[in-house]
């Protein structure tokens, strides 16, 4: 927030220490065998996940996800009356998604203002969720989804999608199904599922073939892909194999998310009987 004079601002130009540190050898991810955290390559070996609903009492629904060191929190507000009255299509509700990184989330400090990368990620979250929410049940109203990445240790987008759909479910928004996100990082012939931050960054530096990353959001109960985003260079066959791996990863996460949701519903007590 550049206009906030009360905030103590640092000098105009400052550099992160990481620029002076010898670069860890990210380009040479060990091409075979185990990954740095003990998981193996080419296997749908997602990081263990901790999930909980309903942490933020003010929000209609909220969820928290922790996978490895990636930590995210998501809040859902609404349905409430839409702020934008100019839209002609009032028969359907409108979904707004906003994804932000905390300034301290990444190794290098980020800005407070939402950058274009975060806007791009917000759009991806929105498009992934849009097809899953029964928006026609909420005419003339809007639903806000806010995702905050507290700590980014890779695959933030994939987990943000999962977290957001869980928060929507926790808020009692009618949906066709849960949306789960999963990402892979392609490194030559092998893939790394649910990559960590170091594994994610290594891709930009190496110049070999088939270096890229892919994020898929998937509705397991309907068998539908609601979001897809890839980056870097990949052959078409690799891409298809990557999508399959991501779908498999989503199926692995599905029971965990379901359990968390069931637990949240049980904890909330019996549903009030409507007359």
């Amino acid at each position: 927030m550049p206009t906030d004079t009360k905030r103590i601002r640092g000098p105009e130009v400052s550099h992160s220490l990481s620029r002076f540190v010898c670069k860890p050898d990210t380009t040479s991810l060990p091409s075979d065998g185990a990954r740095a955290d003990g998981r193996s390559r080419d296997q749908v070996d997602v990081r263990p996940m901790f999930v909980r609903c309903g942490l933020v009492s003010q929000a209609k629904g909220s969820a928290y996800i922790e996978a490895g060191d990636t930590k995210l929190i998501c809040c859902v507000y609404g349905p409430k009356e839409t702020e934008r009255k100019d839209e002609t299509d009032m028969k359907c509700g409108r979904l707004f998604a906003d994804m932000r990184f905390a300034p301290f989330a990444c190794p290098e400090r980020g800005p407070w203002i939402q950058g274009s990368q975060e806007k791009d990620l917000s759009l991806m979250v929105l498009e992934s969720l849009q097809s899953a929410v029964c928006l026609h049940k909420y005419p003339r109203s809007q639903i806000d989804v806010n995702v905050m990445v507290l700590e980014n240790s890779g695959s933030a987008l994939a987990h943000a999608i999962t977290c957001a759909s869980l928060a929507l479910a926790d808020a009692g928004i009618e949906m066709y199904g849960l949306v789960l996100g999963c990402s892979i990082r392609q490194d030559g012939d092998s893939y790394l599922i649910d990559p960590t931050f170091l594994e994610e960054c290594g891709g930009c530096q190496s110049s070999g073939e088939n270096q890229g990353s892919l994020t898929v959001s998937f509705l397991p109960n309907l068998n539908q892909i609601s979001g897809l985003q890839s980056d870097g260079e990949m052959a078409e066959g690799t891409l298809a194999a990557g999508v399959r791996a991501c779908i498999e990863g989503c199926y692995k996460l599905y029971p965990v998310i379901q359990q968390a949701l069931i637990k949240a519903v049980r904890g909330a007590g019996p549903l009030p009987i409507e007359s």
Partner: peptide
């Protein structure tokens, strides 16, 4: 590669 639009696609 990216999917755009509000709908979903079957694998």
């Amino acid at each position: 590669m990216r999917k755009v639009g509000g709908g979903s696609l079957d694998p």
